[in-house]
């Protein structure tokens, strides 16, 4: 579980995160949603330790990442997996080398053991017969699968996804969303997903926090979105005509 307490971050005197309090639960797909510029990416980067908050605390299973020294932070990071918006695959390596990379860096497994584990995760994300392909030869959806495989190869306790289905067609996006949710349940991971895709929110939003101008304005699940009593949240969720009509029908 991850707990965020009074998190505050500013850049050049502009407040980006204003006293955020949130809880991201184990075994659930936790979503951070909000418009572009609402502070989602900054919050995710603070969780990852890529940005240091100006104030507040972040607890990973009661360990405060904000108080850790860089060496301890590095150890904690070995328990994290991340899927970047751009997939961030190493373009000089093929699929197999990309996935095996964390194992080579941090384990003393033999080549055979590493390959066995790689084939296991490749099978899990349905990427068979792609081991020798370079990232540039893969479609957007396949690149995301490789990124997910690389993120879970070390059996992480925490999985972070920054807009995992951006640039994907709606059908592939839902497949990727479901894959992340299945993996979260299967491996009992605390998954945090940063998104502004309403399909993802409806499909896998087990625990949602909504940010608006750096303030957490709403939290809940995809089940109680229709009962949310927040004007900004309603404005964000029902931004298109079709969703407005859906809401009227629901009523």
């Amino acid at each position: 579980m991850i707990r965020v307490k009074n998190l505050y971050k500013s850049f050049d005197n502009v407040d980006v995160l204003k006293k955020i309090n949130a809880k991201f639960e184990k075994g659930k797909t936790n979503l951070i949603i909000g418009q572009s510029g609402s502070g989602k990416t900054v919050l995710l980067k603070c969780l990852l330790g890529l940005l240091n908050p100006d104030d507040g605390k972040i607890f990973f299973n009661e360990i405060s990442i904000t108080d850790l020294k860089s060496k301890e932070k590095r150890l904690l990071r070995k328990e994290m997996g991340i899927v970047f918006q751009s997939s961030a695959l190493f373009d000089s390596m093929n699929v197999q080398e990309n996935i095996i990379f964390p194992l080579r860096m941090f384990t003393s497994k033999t080549e055979e053991e590493m390959l066995e584990r790689v084939n296991e995760v490749i099978k899990r994300v349905n990427l068979i017969n792609s081991n020798n392909k370079m990232p540039s030869e893969l479609s957007g959806g396949m690149q995301k699968r490789v990124a997910i495989a690389r993120a879970i190869v070390m059996n992480p306790k925490f999985l972070f996804c920054d807009e995992p289905n951006s640039g994907l067609d709606p059908k592939t996006a839902i497949i990727i969303d479901n894959l992340i949710q299945e993996i979260t349940k299967e491996y009992e991971i605390t998954t945090v997903i940063n998104t502004h895709d309403m399909n993802s929110v409806m499909e896998i939003g087990e625990n949602i926090i909504f940010l608006k101008d750096g303030i957490k304005e709403w939290d809940g699940t995809n089940k109680n979105i229709y009962n949310a009593n927040n004007a900004h949240f309603d404005e964000f969720v029902y931004s298109s005509e079709i969703l407005k009509k859906a809401k009227e029908l629901m009523k």
């Binding site: 990071r77 070995k78 991340i82 970047f84 961030a88 190493f90 373009d91 860096m105």
Partner: peptide, 18 residues
């Protein structure tokens, strides 16, 4: 620089690599 703009360096950092 290309690794920086395509978030590959961030990916390495998150893995705990110097």
């Amino acid at each position: 620089g290309t690794m920086r703009v395509t978030e590959q360096i961030d990916a390495l950092e998150v893995m705990g690599i110097n």
